[in-house]
């Protein structure tokens, strides 16, 4: 799924930190970084095109977090090798120590149901049902992707995380369905 404007699709901050961290040990080419990311993301790397990593590296260079130098190659055109600067190194340490957690979705959906019921605009049960189907479909594709990964791969771990969160979401949606059904009966 090629996306010409990566900044709109990916949470760029994360990609920036990851690229910085990957450079912490030793200087690398852009394509090496991309290969690492692809391995970690497995099927999720489908949206990660080559340009995305270079765009990110350019931005980081502009921000003074990495430096680059050209290295001559015998049989190919010269390539850039990126290296971490001291501020970049500080940034990596900060990121690793950061404990903020991606926010789950319930509050917004919950308020949507309450509002829909109050306004009488839409049946909360129907909303829950529709949402359930969407989440279920997501779960199905995540689960299939997970099963497609060889056991023990890093990407499988990521996919398991996706599956478990969606599973939790479904459990909660079931609870919503029960609640709103019993509401209607009274």
């Amino acid at each position: 799924m090629p996306d010409e404007e990566p900044s709109s699709g990916y949470q760029l901050r994360v990609v920036q930190e990851v690229v910085l961290a990957l450079l912490a040990k030793e200087a690398s080419h852009g394509y090496q970084l991309r290969a690492r990311l692809q391995l970690a993301l497995g099927p999720l790397a489908e949206a990660l095109n080559a340009g995305h990593v270079y765009v990110t590296l350019n931005r980081l260079e502009r921000a003074g977090l990495v430096t680059s130098k050209r290295v001559g190659q015998t049989d190919r055109p010269d390539r850039k090798v990126y290296e971490l600067t001291d501020p970049g190194r500080e940034r990596v340490v900060e990121w690793l120590d950061d404990t903020s957690w991606p926010k789950p979705a319930p509050a917004e959906f919950h308020l949507k149901l309450v509002a829909a019921a109050a306004a009488g605009l839409s049946d909360p049960e129907r909303l829950v049902d529709t949402q359930r189907h969407v989440v279920l479909a997501g779960l199905a594709s995540a689960q299939r992707a997970a099963l497609g990964e060889p056991a023990g791969s890093a990407a499988a771990l990521l996919l398991e995380g996706v599956v478990l969160r969606l599973q939790a979401d479904l459990h909660w949606l079931d609870a919503c369905a029960r609640y709103w059904t019993s509401r209607k009966e009274h």
């Binding site: 799924m1 699709g9 990916y10 949470q11 994360v14 993301l41 099927p43 999720l44 489908e46 949206a47 991606p102 969407v134 279920l136 479909a137 997501g138 199905a140 594709s141 995540a142 992707a145 990521l158 996919l159 995380g161 996706v162 969606l166």
Partner: peptide, 11 residues
């Protein structure tokens, strides 16, 4: 059904 990268919080 649904974009995986989106589900994974990458987008």
């Amino acid at each position: 059904g649904g974009r995986l990268s989106e589900l994974a919080g990458l987008e």
